[in-house]
Design a protein around this nucleic acid. Structure first.
Lengths: 297, 297
DNA sequence: GATATGGATGAATACAGCTCATGGATAGCT
DNA sequence: AGCTATCCATGAGCTGTATTCATCCATATC
């Protein structure tokens, strides 16, 4: 009977965000009275209180919290749909919302984005790196349109495709004793300082695929945000790091770095790009995947 | 500038569904004129045609198709939110929307649902078995609240938990030569008729984990929809099937069936239930997971 | 050509939602 | 305690938007 309207979602969200009806009303370009009326009507029609009036403060009830979560989920999708429609209005434009879930993915992405932007001047590219529900969740929730990740998920209405195979190697500086070694064994890192990106150990390949199986931990573990600084540190002998071989080779002209194989077999990795199956026909998305595949080398 | 309203989504969807403005108008309890005005205004404000008028038929444009996909995605979520709020209004009721992705899951589910319904008289249970984007996608899209599946997905805002470990066995009838065998080798099925549920071979464990690794295919492969009929067929000697051991044992009193281990090691499987992390606190959902865990046996 | 069907349009109208004006409650301050 | 500022509630009245009504136009069908 009651139709939950967009305005209702907007109200719930604004009240939560600004803390009071008065403040929310201002943001929504309404009078406080209008909001009060609207809220009352909504609650009447639903038959649930969405807020409890504690003196002069509004505290959301359980139902209010629920409706808020719905609003936070759906409103962004509505605004994005509007934006997308406006892009249709301006000819075939688009926004490619890319999510990335691993640091080497970012370096790879940078290389692909440049030619993509050149080929698709009318498409904007947006990159997001933080997801409440993980990259896969962001794809499903339409927060992003394309995911770059080392962990694909098959058969679910998503399409994943490998775009890059690479070898994860140990990077050492010019003074380092391992410099000339053909490969490194886990034990040889027991007395080293290991520099990594600041993410959980169970998401770092050097741990999961190399150190932990051998039961080894490095002497010290230092997290660093950016690749550049990380490699500067390595070059100056402050520690060693694990990175893709191609990434190390790119820095080789600038910094004196050596890549050493991890174990006798080496640690190999893949990067994938995933899109929603429903988007598989969208030209500017498709094009990115194909461009990525060409960059496989 | 233009606010995309719920009514707009409803219009787009109704027009698609009923094929004409006139028919859609009737369904929406509006006059044809009202719809025509509304459509015109929407298109004006968006600056895009949503339909091309071909003589007297409306064909959606690309933008129209897009908006339709948005509508089909968001409208169900809105209506479900309304339903959920109405449930809040009636005290702590709820609807538990369960999705299942495997046939043995269904048999297991039946066993758990009965005590659950008894313990939560105010909660309705809904079971869905078909998902456009797979079970995981349905969870993310809020089509279901709980997924029963053999394939969990960790770290993405979803919580999976194993609820049942079981052994997948070969079921044979009372006349069958394998009846007394301690286990069966893949080659021994080369001259058999294999009865399975009607799903793709790469989702059938007996193929992926037993036959295909050995390069064997059964003489005949017969798909059957229901477990009961399947086991009737097996009991009457028309073929063999692969099912969970516990399921076979349940039918043992009624039908003369024998379970034979697949290979020397046996094929072991797990069933998991998954929920959205955001729902982990919802009492009636939590209760189901816990009830499921107790039924592990 | 006659008829049926479906969409468009302009003017009239009805009603939902807004504003205005005001009142009550409470927290914070002096 | 009193004073004041802040916030929400309420009713009456207004306004604008969405709807209807009446009508017209286009085209497919027979």
């Amino acid at each position: 009977m009651t139709q939950l309207e967009r305005s209702h979602l907007a109200i719930v969200r604004a009240v939560d965000q600004y803390g009071s009806l008065t403040a929310a009303a201002e943001r929504l370009n309404l009078t406080q009275s209008a909001l009060s009326h609207a809220v009352r009507k909504l609650e009447d029609q639903l038959g649930v209180a969405l807020w409890t009036r504690e003196s002069r403060r509004l505290r959301p009830t359980q139902a209010g919290e629920y409706l808020l979560s719905v609003a936070n989920r759906l409103l962004p999708q509505l605004t994005h749909a509007e934006a997308r429609l406006r892009q249709f209005a301006q000819g075939e434009r688009g926004t490619l919302r890319i999510g990335i879930e691993c640091h080497p993915c970012y370096a790879w992405l940078l290389k692909v984005v440049a030619p993509y932007l050149a080929a698709w001047p009318d498409v904007d590219v947006d990159v997001k790196q933080e997801f409440q529900f993980g990259g896969i969740g962001a794809l499903f929730a339409h927060e992003i349109d394309l995911l770059v990740t080392p962990d694909p998920l098959y058969e679910t209405g998503l399409r994943f495709e490998p775009v890059l195979d690479y070898e994860q190697v140990l990077v050492v500086g010019p003074q380092h004793p391992l410099r000339a070694a053909p490969f490194v064994q886990p034990e040889q890192l027991a007395r080293e300082t290991l520099i990594t990106y600041p993410i959980a150990i169970d998401r770092l390949d050097i741990y999961t695929q190399f150190l932990l199986p051998a039961g080894i931990r490095p002497k010290r573990h230092k997290p660093i945000e950016t690749t550049d600084i990380m490699l500067q540190m390595v070059a100056s002998g402050r520690g060693v790091a694990a990175l893709p071989r191609w990434l190390v080779e790119e820095y080789a002209p600038k910094l004196e770095l050596t890549a050493v194989r991890l174990g006798t077999q080496g640690v190999t990795k893949q990067i994938f790009v995933g899109i929603r199956a429903a988007d598989a026909q969208t030209a500017y998305l498709r094009a990115f995947v194909e461009l990525g595949r060409e960059h496989r080398n």
